[in-house]
Amino acid sequence: MVEGPRSDRIHLVKLRCELNGGQVEEEIPDHELLIDFLRERLGLTGTKMSCEVQVCGACTVLVDGNPVSSCCMLAADVDGHSVLTIEGLRDLPEYVTLERAFLNHAATQCGFCTPGFMLTSAALMASGAPRTRRERSEALSGNLCRCTGYSVILDAVEEAVGAYDEN
């Protein structure tokens, strides 16, 4: 059960990426997780840590527009890529639509899962939204919410997708 101490040697790597529309360049340990890079190093605390095994989706961010679990991705692996967190989504035009839809449908309760749902929803909006409720439900099945019964979140996403399509 008892293990010895890990090696103290830290390999630093250079990370250059686009983050929330700006350029970031940092020297980081090669084993640093993307979520720790965002939350601890940059103070972007809108991304939440929960399950740590890529199940709950609370840590969802978009990498090149695709939802990923930042708890299970190395920060070094986003080198040369584009990362969007809830802090960046707030500045995009679709945010207003998503925000209004989530508020209209009371689709947030404790709020811990909400940033993750917002980012997954934003990816859905951008990628040509699935047509049916079942498809939307499947697309959101990688985000867990323990407060709501999910139906209000699906309603919100439906409204947002519809509203966005009209624009």
Partner: peptide, 22 residues
Amino acid sequence: SIDRVDGPAKVAGRAEFTGDMH
């Protein structure tokens, strides 16, 4: 059924939880 008062902060990821505090 008004919007919840903490809704905008939570949707924006601005609502502060203990783990977000320094």
